[in-house]
């Protein structure tokens, strides 16, 4: 299948736009920082960390290309642990909290195993990504279940953590297949395939950052709610 050159150019622009859109949630996060709850402060840490990794990745690409994948392996691990912490603070069930602690230890061990033995540091850690997607989507669904059980928020679309969880579900379900096949698809010679993968990733990223921006917009505001039963 031939991909027209204009589409490739469009894809490049989209990718750049997506990386710029992160400034929107970051700006809102800094603006609202004094009023942000702990979970949303952790989200801000996550966004800052993402930007730092992007910067480090660009520098490493220039000076030590061999380390490039290693940085992203490290990013996947820290990203997952940050989300684990956010959900640990949000989910109220003691059993789920215990599960998160075990999952964090198990995931860390698996991520190291994947990076050092299973797939190595010279390619994308797709196994870790799949595990990450499954765990984070699971935690987001547990949060949805908690919301439906407690029913203390009347406008879900204005609840910051609902928006964050929606972003998590959309991003990880939209990219899980890309990460499963990424090592097969992105051979350096196949520029078009490579570009399509990153465009798909950028599109989902764009939606994710917009939802994060909305979450920061509503964070710290008094939402219409009803007392807990």
């Amino acid at each position: 299948m031939h991909i027209p050159s204009w589409l490739l150019t469009f894809c490049e622009y989209l990718e750049q736009t997506a990386s710029l859109v992160v400034l929107l949630p970051l700006g809102l996060a800094f603006w609202r920082w004094p009023r942000l709850p702990k979970t949303m402060r952790l989200m801000t840490v996550y966004l800052v960390f993402t930007e730092l990794v992007l910067l480090a990745s660009s520098l490493v690409e220039l000076y030590r290309p061999a380390w490039s994948y290693g940085i992203w392996h490290f990013f996947t691990l820290v990203q997952t642990l940050l989300f684990f912490r956010i959900y640990y603070l949000t989910l109220s069930s003691p059993a789920v909290r215990l599960l998160i602690q075990f999952a964090a230890v198990g995931f860390t061990v698996f991520a190291f195993l994947d990076s050092l033995y299973l797939e190595g540091l010279q390619q994308v850690n797709s196994y870790t990504h799949v595990a990450q997607s499954a765990l984070l989507i699971g935690l987001a669904l547990l949060y949805f279940e908690q919301l439906l059980n407690e029913l203390h928020i009347t406008r879900l679309e204005q609840d910051p953590l609902f928006l964050v969880s929606t972003a998590v579900v959309l991003y990880f379900s939209g990219t899980v297949l890309l990460y499963v096949f990424v090592n097969k698809l992105s051979a350096p010679a196949d520029y078009a395939s490579h570009q399509v993968i990153y465009t798909l990733n950028s599109m989902v990223n764009l939606v994710q950052y917009l939802l994060f921006a909305l979450a920061f917009w509503y964070a710290g505001r008094t939402l219409p709610s009803q007392s807990r039963p």
Partner: peptide, 20 residues
């Protein structure tokens, strides 16, 4: 172009739709 790409491109929107 890689033969894996088309199925991935088709399956991804389906998964997104499911998530939505």
């Amino acid at each position: 172009m890689n033969s894996w790409l088309l199925p991935v491109m088709l399956a991804t929107p389906v998964l997104l739709l499911l998530a939505l």
